[in-house]
Design a protein around this nucleic acid. Sequence first.
DNA 1: ACCTCTTTTACGGTTTCCCGTAAAGAAATG
DNA 2: CATTTCTTTACGGGAAACCGTAAAAGAGGT
Lengths: 222, 222
Amino acid sequence: MFHKVLIAEDLDSISIAVVQALEEISILEINHAKYCDDAFLKIKKALHDNQPYDLLISDLSFKPDHRENRLNSGEELIEAVKKAQPDIKTIVFSIEDKSFRIKSLFNNLGINAYVSKGRDSIPELKKAIQRIYNNEEIKPSAEISHALRDKSLFEIESYDISLLKSLSKGLTLEDISSEFKHSGIIPNGSSSLEKRINRLKIYFKASNNVHLIAITKDLGLV
Amino acid sequence: MFHKVLIAEDLDSISIAVVQALEEISILEINHAKYCDDAFLKIKKALHDNQPYDLLISDLSFKPDHRENRLNSGEELIEAVKKAQPDIKTIVFSIEDKSFRIKSLFNNLGINAYVSKGRDSIPELKKAIQRIYNNEEIKPSAEISHALRDKSLFEIESYDISLLKSLSKGLTLEDISSEFKHSGIIPNGSSSLEKRINRLKIYFKASNNVHLIAITKDLGLV
DNA sequence: ACCTCTTTTACGGTTTCCCGTAAAGAAATG
DNA sequence: CATTTCTTTACGGGAAACCGTAAAAGAGGT
């Protein structure tokens, strides 16, 4: 079994149970960080000491705090960690269940498993760890397997996300047009933006911009 | 100390830690339900057997599921429980940190304590239980005490919420006007709605409707 | 170079939003 | 009952969104 595992999780109520679970599958060295920055430092320190971690189990969202942090989400943490130690195994353990985000975790960050916090997640987490250790094919947990099959979600690109983000900031189409021109994002004609927004409205069955933002906010896209 | 305590919490990763915490402060009978409906049944059963629960610790949000449930949130659960057993003590243990919602828990449901899931919440939970058992004055945990002092939040009423909800559904002002007329909500003139929305836009520093919905979505008001 | 298909941009008309002002109605005060 | 004050509603003009159509620009193929 893995020797050295790091847990990045802000909620103490959850990390307690995860630590317990790891002990039960006889993992010898278990460490825990409540902040992404701390987790990253521990990874670096372990590397430097030539005793690197085998596995990182990370949450996605961390509560903001009085503390100023450089890394503020599981995504950012994993990205940074993979740069420092590309061979580390990673599991995301989060309540997030939006297919769009989970997909991008596998595709963009190359995580090894995703376990959704739910009514029976601790056993699932144990199984996922075992599978990764055995280098077995990752079978996404039943709850989210449908999400990964959902091809249609591929079509929403980062361009759409920035567009939605700008909209949700209260910018007008003209504003966004000049903003995009300024940052070199194309297309940026206000007419094109309009067309693109229209595509999104059809896609999400929204009747106007307000509705569109409400829907995509719910989906966690913005 | 309390004898009989019920935990209503869907995430196994959290309930494990809570059960452990209760054991540590020597509570003898600890039960746990993953669904609001199950929790309510246990309360009723215990009442019927003349061995009622002393304390209910409940989450607010429960993941939807294949199961059809009558009660779908902590609020609904507590409301139902208090009707069946008015003298039961209640603690809400949730990640929710929107002052608006916490306030209404104390004011409308008469909960005995609110503990916010965070980086140091298990000790806080223990303290809260102790305080309630000793009938001490409830001191809201430091994190949220400022929220309760925030008077301005009193001004946002359920009227505003329904207005924002309708907006986020993509309805136009005219639509909302007739909807409100239909359900007897006043004021319902489209001009009044406009004025009210304007008040909200000033309050939340939103530059237009889209922005307003984005902000209030983030705050969890809608 | 020419044609074709696609993408991007432009334009015009209609609806809805946005914002100020003002009238009508309701409630409170003396 | 008259006056004041607050709330609700009405109206009008300008800005932005909404929606269809069409021109301009690019990309790819022959």
